[in-house]
Structures are given as structure tokens and as C-alpha cells.
Design a protein around this nucleic acid. Structure first.
Length: 234
DNA sequence: GCGACAG
DNA sequence: ATCTTGTCGC
């Protein structure tokens, strides 16, 4: 049974209450350090029926956020939302959430179902301060979230990966496991999976594989990416 | 100082 | 991310 939106009531969330978003890079960094301890890593409870892929495209200082909610295991689209607005914060490696969160929250608020898990095309704990976009979004909403990125921001693979689908190795930074390097397709470059909030790295890896039966990029994120690039005029 | 650097 | 066509390889 699909969960109604009320358990993820973004409309009620005054996300500016936690902290301002119009901040300097120094302030943004301090906010990350303050919120990072709030990330929790515990096993998902119950079956995951729906996963929401989240992505943002930016053209000429205008952001278009897209959310695609897919049902497991068939990966059928059950809900979707788009939100367009101006972007204020520049792209700074390590501060992506300050650029992408403001467009994403209003898009999530448009959903008519509550996805069990949120999936971003970014890092979660695999971040210099262990607080990537996936963590920031997860903590703000207090909802299970994972990050699946296409390249490394910080850290390095523990060992070389074999070329078979499902092959994985820890992503290590300063002696700490901050995520996983995962081959989602045989013979294709791996993706980098990490915890955003309220799930374990093993949960995140398993979900990523469940969502990637055909392509390197998981289906929820893939669809969100396509939607974020759809052009509409008004 | 130099190189690295999610999207 | 974004600007962009064909093309090499499994």
C-alpha cells in the first residue's frame, strides 16, 4: 500500500527554521559540521516499496528539480513532480546541498505519496565533513535517504574492483569507511554509494542494485534526471 | 604554492 | 552541471 504524503509533510516543514540558506561558504561549512552528528545509520525497518529518485538541472541560473517515485521490484513510475525556481548558491565542491535543496523541497511537497526511501545523485557521508547532499536532505526531512554519485568527492577505493556486476569495495577516507564503490553493471565504471540518513551502507548498496537492473545509474535517479531536463514554457 | 574537486 | 555527433567496443 502506498503511503500517503502526510508522513513526509514537506509543506509543513519550515526548512529555513533549521538554518538560513542565503549564507557564505564559511557559514555553509559550519552548518554542515553542526548537522553532521545528526545523521543516523540504522537498518531500514520493513520492506521498501517505493524509492524516489531526485535530480536537479540548472540552466541560466534557473533550477528545475525533479522527483520520480518508482515502485519495487518492477520499477514502475507511481508518482512524479517538478519544481522550477532561481538558484542562489553557486556550485562549490562540498556545498552542493546549498544549491540543490531549495529547488528539491517544493518538488517533494507536490507528491501525493510518501516514498519509503529518497535517492539522490550525490554523496551522503562520502563527503569531507561526512554531510553531503543526501545527508542534508535526509536530516531535514528525517527520512531514509541514500546517495549514489558517479565520481568521487573524497576518499579512495579500498581495493581494485572485479568487473562483474555486484562487485563492491569500501570507499575509504582517513582510515574510515565512508561509502561503497559498487559495480552496477558488468564491465561498466562503478558508482559510489553512501548513507544519507536512517539506513545502513548495506541497505544503500542493496537498494542501488535493486534499482539498477539495466543501467549503470539507478532507475529512479535516471528518470528524475530526464524529467529535470524536460522543457516546458509558461 | 600545487593539485583535487559530488553536480 | 552544461556545451554537443559520431563512433569505438562488448
Amino acid at each position: 500500500m502506498l503511503r500517503p504524503l502526510d508522513t513526509l509533510d514537506v509543506m509543513q516543514l519550515d526548512f529555513q527554521h533549521e538554518h538560513p540558506w542565503d549564507v557564505s561558504t564559511e557559514e555553509a561549512t559550519a552548518i554542515q559540521e553542526r548537522l553532521a552528528p545528526r545523521v543516523t545509520e540504522s537498518s531500514l525497518s520493513g520492506d521498501v516499496e517505493t524509492v524516489a529518485g531526485i535530480d536537479v538541472s540548472i540552466r541560466d541560473d534557473t533550477a528545475q528539480a525533479a522527483v520520480a517515485v518508482l515502485r519495487l521490484p518492477d520499477l514502475e513510475l507511481v508518482d512524479r513532480a517538478i519544481h522550477r525556481c532561481d538558484v542562489a548558491f553557486p556550485y562549490v565542491p562540498g556545498l552542493l546541498s546549498f544549491r540543490e535543496t531549495p529547488p528539491v523541497l517544493p518538488a517533494l511537497a507536490q507528491l501525493s505519496v510518501t516514498p519509503d526511501v529518497l535517492m539522490t545523485d550525490s554523496h551522503g557521508r562520502a563527503h569531507p565533513r561526512r554531510f553531503g547532499f543526501a545527508c542534508h536532505l535526509g536530516v531535514l526531512l528525517d527520512h531514509p535517504t541514500l546517495g549514489v554519485a558517479k565520481s568521487i568527492l573524497t576518499g579512495e577505493p579500498d581495493r581494485a574492483l572485479s568487473s562483474e556486476k555486484g562487485s563492491r569495495t569500501p570507499l575509504i577516507d582517513e582510515g574510515e569507511t565512508i561509502g561503497g564503490v559498487l559495480r552496477t553493471r558488468t564491465g561498466v565504471n562503478p558508482v559510489y554509494v553512501s548513507v544519507g540518513h536512517r539506513l545502513t551502507l548495506d541497505d544503500a548498496v542493496a537498494l542501488t542494485l535493486d534499482c539498477s537492473p539495466r543501467y549503470k545509474i539507478p532507475e529512479p535517479t535516471r528518470q528524475a534526471h530526464r524529467m529535470s531536463r524536460e522543457i516546458e514554457d509558461e
